[in-house]
């Protein structure tokens, strides 16, 4: 699998495999065997269940959170996770924005923070401000067009992950 991804402001190939919750279940062991050498993103419950086994694999492991799952569950594991993905079941579900800020600002997570699911051009700017640095766009989105969204605004009022000093502390 290699779909397009926007990461750190560039369009690039995506080499991670996202294992959906419903593809695991009883077939979890088979799936993991199938992806032994691959970089995979697993659902939270899978991670919590067999963390040791996942870390022993040759490929890298990331975790994805459903929008109702909170990053607190990963508090002890951040250093071991090169990637955390936050899922937007629908683009209008705003919970992952808060999770992203929590991960970046309160928990100090520095790995890749990826938006997955219903990820559309018109939400990218705010996502980036909340600390997402990678965007697995919905299939129908044009990555070139989406990339321009990161420059929708030249500046913003609030403190944010990409610009931690609010305008009122910078205003001349």
């Amino acid at each position: 699998m290699s779909s397009t991804l926007i990461k750190d402001g560039n369009i690039c190939a995506d080499n991670w495999f996202l294992l959906a919750a419903d593809t695991l279940g009883d077939t979890q062991a088979d799936k993991l065997a199938e992806h032994e050498g691959d970089d995979i993103i697993v659902p939270l419950n899978c991670w919590l269940e067999i963390r040791g086994q996942l870390l022993a694999r040759t490929g890298k492991t990331g975790v994805w959170l459903q929008s109702n799952e909170t990053p607190a569950a990963l508090a002890a594991d951040l250093a071991q996770l090169p990637l955390i993905a936050l899922n937007f079941p629908v683009f209008s579900d705003g919970r992952p924005y808060s999770s992203a800020r929590e991960l970046r600002q309160n928990m100090g997570y520095e790995g890749e923070l990826r938006a997955v699911g219903d990820v559309l051009r018109d939400q990218l700017f705010y996502m980036a401000r909340c600390g997402f640095n990678a965007f697995a766009l919905r299939d129908d989105q044009d990555p070139e067009v989406a990339l321009t969204a990161l420059n929708d605004f030249q500046d913003s009022y609030q403190a944010s992950v990409d610009r931690p000093v609010p305008l009122f502390r910078r205003r001349a």
């Binding site: 683009f91 705003g94 909340c130 609030q158």
Partner: peptide, 17 residues
């Protein structure tokens, strides 16, 4: 006005319940 600026384009709270 301070609240107006804080809330305007607040990136975290554009898709509230």
């Amino acid at each position: 006005e301070i609240i107006r600026q804080w809330s305007t384009f607040h990136p975290e709270f554009a898709y509230l319940p």
